[in-house]
Simulated assay, not measured.
Amino acid sequence: MTARPPASAALPAAPLLVQGRSGGLREVVGRRFLLSLLVRKELRVRYRASVLGLGWSYVKPAVQFGVYFVGLGLVLRQNAIGDYAVYLFGGLVVMTAFGEAVGNATRSVVTNADLVRKIYLPRELFPVSSLCVAGVHLGPQLLVLLVGALVAGWSPDPLGLLALVGAFTLVALLALGLGLLLAAVNVLFRDVENVVDLVLMVLVWTSPVLYPWQRVADLLGPDSLLLTVYQSNPLTVAVELVHRGTWAHASPGNAASLPPDLGPRVLLSFAIAAALLAVGQLTFRRLSGRFAQEL
């Protein structure tokens, strides 16, 4: 009669897992169904008992656009820029999407404190779900932008469409990297979300959204180091990519107003975004084991 092996030899030893620490963004990819549940939950909570529901995705940017267009375009005569409505709204779409994604991601872990304390799931799901919700709200705004550009005379071209895809890919990478970093730090220091709100409030003025980039060049000088820093800001690059994709071909002469050397700065911006994403993911993973304790 053959001897049976010990139970410990029959079953392979399972690797030890550090509870509270996930496999990072790769694990989020494998939890797509759970991610979709979190996105639906966030949308349902946000629009609970709301008459307009997702219609607020149109109302809020429309009001913001109207205020800036009247104040700057009509009162301060910024509409000397050709097709100023398309120029303005293109930049606002970028800033609105980025601001919503980063602001919500910063609060995402604290907002879901009950889930963090009670069950284990990849903590990265919370910032990523905030990014997805911002993407849902981006859809209607982008549709309005494209329709407005078509009315203004926009003729789509392959390079312009590629610029649009590149712009919002860049915004998504930046928002995710910053969102992971800020969400983790916000668990330890709740002042972070208030600082983020202040920064996002003034961020629209740090890129050529309300004014042309030539105004900054005239102020700082064409060979200024500060101008180089300004133009290398990844959000500035994202705004200019949207302008290249829509506004530049709305009327003859608009394309000539785009900044030079946009291509190299696009590559630099994606490198910055990739580095920021790596830092954000590393910081988030290192601090995620303390989330339940701190919350």
Score class of each variant (00 low, 15 high):
Ala238Cys: 14
Val242Thr: 08
His243Phe: 02
Leu235Met: 05
His243Thr: 03
Ala238Asn: 02
Leu226Thr: 10
His243Gln: 13
Tyr230Gln: 01
Pro222Glu: 15
Thr228Val: 14
Asp223Cys: 05
Asn233Ala: 08
Leu235Asp: 02
Glu240Ala: 11
Leu220Val: 09
Asn233Met: 01
Leu226Ile: 13
Ala238Tyr: 00
Thr236Phe: 13
Leu227Tyr: 15
Gln231Cys: 06
His249Tyr: 08
Gly245Arg: 07
Glu240Met: 14
Val242Glu: 00
Ala248Tyr: 04
His249Phe: 10
Pro222Val: 11
Thr246Arg: 03
Leu226Ser: 14
Gly245Gln: 03
Arg244Val: 04
Glu240Cys: 11
Leu235Thr: 00
Leu226Met: 14
Glu240Arg: 09
Thr236Pro: 06
His243Trp: 01
His249Ala: 15
Asp223Phe: 11
Glu240Trp: 05
Ala250Cys: 12
Leu227Arg: 04
Asp223His: 12
Gln231Ala: 13
Tyr230Cys: 01
Val239Ser: 00
Asn233Ser: 14
Asn233Pro: 07
Ser224Asn: 08
Thr246Cys: 06
Pro234Ile: 03
Pro222Ala: 14
Asp223Arg: 15
Arg244Leu: 14
Val242Gly: 10
Pro234Tyr: 06
Thr236Gln: 00
Ala238Lys: 02
Leu227Ile: 09
Leu220Glu: 11
Leu235Cys: 06
Trp247Glu: 05
Leu235Lys: 08
Leu226Val: 14
Pro222Phe: 12
Thr228Phe: 05
Gln231His: 08
Ser232Phe: 10
Gly245Thr: 02
Thr236Val: 02
Ala238Trp: 02
Trp247Phe: 09
Leu225Thr: 15
Tyr230Asn: 00
Gln231Phe: 11
Ala248Ser: 13
His249Arg: 09
Leu241Met: 15
Trp247Asp: 05
Ala238Gly: 07
Pro234Ser: 07
Leu220Met: 08
Val237Ser: 01
Gln231Arg: 15
Leu241Ala: 08
Val239Glu: 05
Ser232Ile: 03
His249Trp: 08
Val229Leu: 13
Gly221Phe: 06
Glu240Lys: 05
Ala238Arg: 06
Val237Glu: 01
Ser224Gln: 09
Val242His: 01
Val237Trp: 04
Val237Cys: 01
Leu220Trp: 10
Gly221Met: 05
Val242Ala: 09
Gly221Cys: 10
Thr236Ile: 00
Thr246Gln: 06
Leu225Gly: 10
Ala248Trp: 00
His249Met: 13
Thr236Leu: 00
His249Gln: 13
Gly245Trp: 03
Leu226Asp: 11
Leu220Ser: 12
Ser232Gln: 13
Arg244His: 11
Val242Tyr: 02
Glu240Pro: 07
Gln231Lys: 13
Pro222Gln: 15
Leu225Met: 15
Thr228Met: 05
Val242Trp: 04
Pro222Trp: 11
Leu241Ser: 00
Val237Asn: 04
Leu220Asn: 09
Tyr230Ala: 00
Leu241Arg: 06
Leu220Cys: 10
Tyr230Ile: 05
Asn233Phe: 04
Tyr230Pro: 00
His243Arg: 11
Val237Ala: 01
Arg244Cys: 07
Ala248Ile: 06
Leu220His: 12
Ala250Leu: 06
Leu235Tyr: 03
Val237His: 02
Ser232Gly: 05
Leu227Glu: 08
Pro234Lys: 04
Thr228Trp: 09
Glu240Asn: 12
Leu235Trp: 03
Ala250Gln: 08
Ala250Thr: 14
Val242Asp: 04
His249Asn: 14
Leu241Asp: 04
Asn233His: 07
Ala250Asn: 07
Gln231Thr: 13
